[in-house]
């Protein structure tokens, strides 16, 4: 099949950027979207032009590296699918597509369709961890976790950090991502010691990174390739305000010695 692509080309963070039209005449329905771009890039390289930059790694839908907007939709039109797992059989001959990078103040464009998502790393660094005792490995199932709780933690842990939630959110909010990380750890017994501090620190970092607030539109959960629900956002809000208002101040003894 033959496609017309309008690809956002931008040399760097401070370049203005704009769409460039490409004709791709030889697309096979068996290709993935990224393989189709590989074909385009091969041709551009042979012509001596710069290939279209885009992020990718596993191409199995599990690493979270890939992602851009296709006709205004994060990862394209298919539900629960990263763009590396989107196959060209979902398109038909003559289709015209617009490819844009994730757009958010917190995600500056590196080049073309690739953006810098370090802001996510900083949110995780602020509180997305649990303390683990050193020494010999603990017994596998020493801490009982009810099945329902384990499942819900796992649902949240499915987040691959691709950024589709931010990209699709009209507020460019990182609430689904941050909520997923907080829920993933906060559901489990191992996540309890840091639970209060985690919500406060991760929400504060999210604000510092210049993400917008959440108005619960629900666009993110429809765009999420892992189908994470906005329930995690409500949970984050609850953890946040309970901790902000009621978390225990350090004991007098700790304050004196510290």
């Amino acid at each position: 099949m033959r496609l017309t692509l309008n690809v956002w080309r931008q040399k760097g963070k401070d370049d203005a950027g704009g769409f460039v039209k490409y004709d791709v005449p030889d697309v096979s329905e068996h290709m993935s979207f990224l393989e189709m771009l590989d074909v385009l890039n091969q041709r551009l390289i042979l012509k001596g032009e710069a290939p279209v930059a885009f992020d990718h790694d596993c191409r199995e839908g599990i690493c979270g590296m890939c992602g851009f907007m296709i006709n205004g939709q994060a990862h394209g039109p298919l539900r629960g699918t990263t763009v590396c797992q989107l196959h060209m059989r979902h398109y038909k001959d003559g289709d015209e597509l617009w490819l844009e990078p994730w757009r958010a103040a917190a995600f500056p464009v590196v080049r073309d369709l690739a953006v810098d998502r370090s802001a996510f790393d900083k949110i995780v660094a602020a509180g997305g961890y649990v303390s683990v005792s050193t020494g010999s490995a603990p017994d596998g199932n020493a801490i009982p976790v009810p099945k329902e709780i384990a499942d819900r933690a796992m649902d949240a842990a499915a987040c691959i950090g691709c950024g589709a939630c931010v990209a699709s959110c009209p507020n460019a909010s990182a609430s689904l991502f941050t909520g997923a990380k907080i829920a993933h750890l906060g559901f489990l017994p191992q996540g309890q010691p840091e639970r209060e501090r985690r919500a406060l620190a991760m929400v504060a970092q999210m604000d510092l990174e210049q993400f917008g607030g959440c108005t619960l539109f629900g666009e993110c959960q429809d765009a999420c390739p892992k189908g994470i629900s906005i329930d995690v956002i409500a949970r984050m809000n609850r953890d946040y305000w309970l901790s902000a208002l009621f978390s225990a101040p350090p004991s007098a003894g700790a304050a004196a010695s510290g």
Binding site: N71, G72, Q73, R103, Q210, G218, E219
Partner: peptide, 28 residues
């Protein structure tokens, strides 16, 4: 909050492709 949202996306998308119909939410 509305101001913070605008600032969070200084460059708008050229093509819009809303998935989740939510007229009430989006016009708050």
């Amino acid at each position: 909050l509305a101001g913070a949202s605008r600032a969070a996306r200084p460059v708008r998308y050229q093509v819009k492709g809303q998935r989740h119909p939510n007229l009430a939410g989006r016009t708050m």
